[in-house]
Design a protein around this nucleic acid. Structure first.
Length: 497
RNA sequence: GGUCGCGUAGCUCAGCUGGUAGAGCAGUUGACUUUUAAUCAAUUGGUCGCAGGUUCGAUCCCUGCCGCGAUCACCA
């Protein structure tokens, strides 16, 4: 990093500030009254053309000085507009101040709309006010007809300095505007169905509701360790027990695990719970939610991971066993645990020799089936062994539970079950998880005594769903990396050497 | 965590399997009153990611480290 060169540029700009102050110009005034956004001024051109008093503000993005007259572009939150400035209109002093401005400065202008010889709607500037001085050079970007030249493309720097990315790369802004639309659309979906939006603790004395390793922190006054939540499930269920019959939460979760294209240490899930419904209801509801999102975004097909996904067609449904049977080519009606282990070994699938039927089925599913699930597909009937919070499949021998996951383009998008509400069964299952933990499984769930007590007071039949929101945003915005849908993705600290 | 690739000016990139670096833009100075990646002329700017090693000599070859990307393993 050549600090020296950069410092020269920055020194020059600091000197400019001193010179401006010496001339009685405030480089950082406190406000500016705008009459229009840049895009409004263009859209309302016919009404305001030629009328003085059009006041715009924004960041100076480019400049073309031709002696006594200049063109420039400013950018505000809505877009860009061209300015025309001349010595004749501004006077010697202001015009020469303009010539000493830098790309990146904020300015306010007052003038009138006109059309240039080449037909571009342009503000002819009669008054110019410096609003904020830049001292650090912006990435140098040329733009023509919406096309960018040179630009700011270093992925690492774009994530580290997202503010620059937002200034310079317009589609980045679009992704986050869309993310906000998606949140709004989800809220509307649930609010319109009489759901209550709730907030539950992020700092938890025990963590649960998912299988993952947590972040740990410490509260000084209480002198106790706390965990950042890995899921909000157990708290939402307490609310169902408490009598809120439909609740949802946008839950920022934290998992102390690996990072890659689809995993950030903190991420957002939406979870919702509804009393008296089962997973059949939830499947229809999830499908309706995805439909609703597609409709709100005005789109039915989405490009994601090299696939075109239609969210408005009916989603497929199949049991996990059917899919494993199909893709692993085994007859599950007769296959024993050791048969499943053999198939795992044959496909080089990592499986412990003491793994049970459910774990092996899940391992086969992950490796052999998941990648094939491109069209939206509900996979139903999960093994009980990997689902400690889900209710037994009705009319079955207890191997399977009433659970489904939604897969799109080989990725999981939703996880839901008919919730286990039998406090005796729940206690046994969490005790089994605790035994696994004692045996060294760091991801096994903890036994939350307060949660079990809550359930002992009685919990109605309930259905619950979790959807990974970041992945959903990836799907709906066509981004391949979770970092592209998070404004400030987690990065390793940048150190010298 | 494993494997592969990348890291050169503020930005975008060249740099011959070794002789201590170039361009465009940005910046600075000058010309130019309808340009739009404005143009023209001149000019500043570099610990070539960091640390070692090989060599008379390293941006280039080797080793380690740091960061990023892709991919595999685990998770949403």
């Amino acid at each position: 990093m050549s600090e020296r060169t950069l410092n020269e540029i920055m020194d020059q700009r600091r000197e400019k500030i001193k010179a401006l102050v010496a001339d009685g110009i405030d480089p950082f005034p406190h406000n500016f009254d705008r009459s229009h956004l840049t895009t409004e001024a263009i859209a309302q051109f016919d009404e305001i053309e030629g009328q003085a008093g059009t006041r715009l503000a924004g960041r100076l993005m480019s400049r073309r000085v031709m002696g006594k007259a200049s063109f420039a572009n400013i950018m505000d939150g809505s877009g860009r507009i061209q300015l025309y400035l001349s010595r004749e209109d501004l006077g010697e002093q202001v015009y020469s101040m303009f010539k000493r401005l830098d790309i990146g400065d904020f300015i306010g202008v007052n003038g009138l709309m006109m059309t240039t010889r080449t037909g571009e709607k342009t503000l002819k500037v009669l008054e110019l006010t410096l609003l904020s001085k830049n001292i650090r050079p912006l990435p140098n970007v040329k733009e023509k007809d919406g096309q960018l030249f040179d630009g700011f493309e270093d992925k690492e720097q774009r994530y580290r300095k997202r503010y620059l990315d937002l200034i310079v790369n317009p589609d980045v802004k679009e992704t986050f505007v869309k993310r906000a639309q998606i949140y709004k659309s989800i809220r509307k979906f649930f609010d319109d169905s009489a759901y209550l939006e709730v907030e539950t603790p992020i700092l938890q004395p025990l963590y649960g509701g998912a299988s993952a390793r947590p972040f740990k922190t410490h509260h000084n006054t209480l002198d106790m360790d706390l965990f950042l939540r890995i899921a909000d499930e157990l708290y939402l269920k307490r609310l169902i027990i408490g009598g809120f019959e439909k609740v949802y939460e946008f839950s920022r979760n934290f998992r102390n695990e690996g990072m890659d294209r689809t995993h950030n240490p903190e991420f957002t899930a939406i979870e919702w719970y509804e009393a008296y419904v089962d997973y059949f209801f939830l499947m229809d509801q999830v499908e309706a939610l995805f439909n609703h999102l597609a409709k709100d975004l005005g789109q039915s097909e989405f490009e994601f991971n090299d696939h075109t996904i239609d969210l408005t067609k009916p989603f497929k449904r199949a049991t996990m066993a059917e899919l494993v049977q199909q893709y692993a080519d085994i007859d599950l009606a007769t296959a024993s645990v050791s048969d499943l282990l053999k198939v795992c070994r044959a496909h080089q699938i990592d499986a412990a020799s003491e793994a049970n039927y459910g774990q092996l089925l899940d391992a086969l599913f992950d490796s052999l089936v998941e990648p094939h699930l491109i069209e939206p597909t509900f996979v139903t009937e999960y093994p009980k062994a990997i689902s400690p919070l889900a209710k037994n499949k009705r009319g079955s021998d207890g191997t399977f539970v009433e659970r489904f996951e939604l897969f799109i383009a080989g990725n999981e998008f939703a996880n839901a079950f008919t919730e286990l509400n039998d406090p005796i069964d729940q206690r046994e299952r969490l005790e089994a998880q605790a035994a696994l933990r004692a045996g060294g499984d760091e991801e096994a769930q903890t036994l939350d005594e307060d949660f079990l007590q809550a359930m002992e007071y009685g919990m109605p039949p309930t259905g619950g769903v979790g959807v990974g929101l970041d992945r959903l945003v990836m799907l709906l915005t066509g981004n391949r990396s979770i970092r592209d849908v998070l404004l400030f993705p987690q990065m390793r600290p940048e150190t010298k050497g």
